[in-house]
Amino acid sequence: MITRRNLIKTGIAGLALPLASAKIINAAETLFPERFEKPNIRWVFLVDTRKCVGCGLCVKACKHENEVPYDTNITRTWVERYILTKDGQVFADSPKGARDGFIDKKINLGEKGSRNVKDEDIQKAFFVPKLCNQCESPPCVQVCPVGATYKTEEGIVLVDRDWCIGCAYCIMACPYGARFFHPVHKVAEKCTFCYHRLKKGMKTACVEACPFGARMIGNIKDPDDPVTKIIMMERIAVLKDEYGTSPQVYYLGISKEVR
């Protein structure tokens, strides 16, 4: 007998199967499939710290290319200098992001002035270039309240200058100190791996500017890419792994003192 209860019961059961196979169809995707193809690209960066001499040409090039006001201290990329003494002390600095290169042996201690370490007291010293890690799970994207910062399909994290409200939550969320406020646009600003250049088939400004090949950019999805090959074959490290961000800037020759 068909009761109301029975009808609803069988109705739900009968509808469940055909509905389960249903799929939402995007008309545009059906008509122009080429526009919806996901690029087979994931941009990653490789820094060989053993080749870096701290000249700062990468920082200069970046500031010019990306119109980050030249005389300000903020910068999309920077170089850090580490000096380890024989008695186990660690000193580090990055004055003006090393825009002018490390031309002085004095270590910059900010408000504490500067400090001289005699050459004979130095155990080892090295330079570490830094930039946005274009994390696989970027905390900055997670915390943006308006979705103004987002990850592109190529894995690069960008900021929409027309939508950012300037709350600084993303700046707080980044464990690498990669973000800051642009003094002209008054919105969050960061390294984009020179996305505008990559789109045209060019390399980033800092990679082009480095005279020693310490900076490299590549597509990790391409097994023939020289950068991919190094990442696969060599012993590499990333920065601040413990935050669970899966950073995509890989380092060769890094030391445990690097922050």
Binding site: N73, T75, S94, G97, E111, I171, M172
Partner: peptide, 14 residues
Amino acid sequence: LKELFTYPNEYIYW
């Protein structure tokens, strides 16, 4: 005011 080793972009934002 920054003291010792800080990243170049670090300030008190909040």
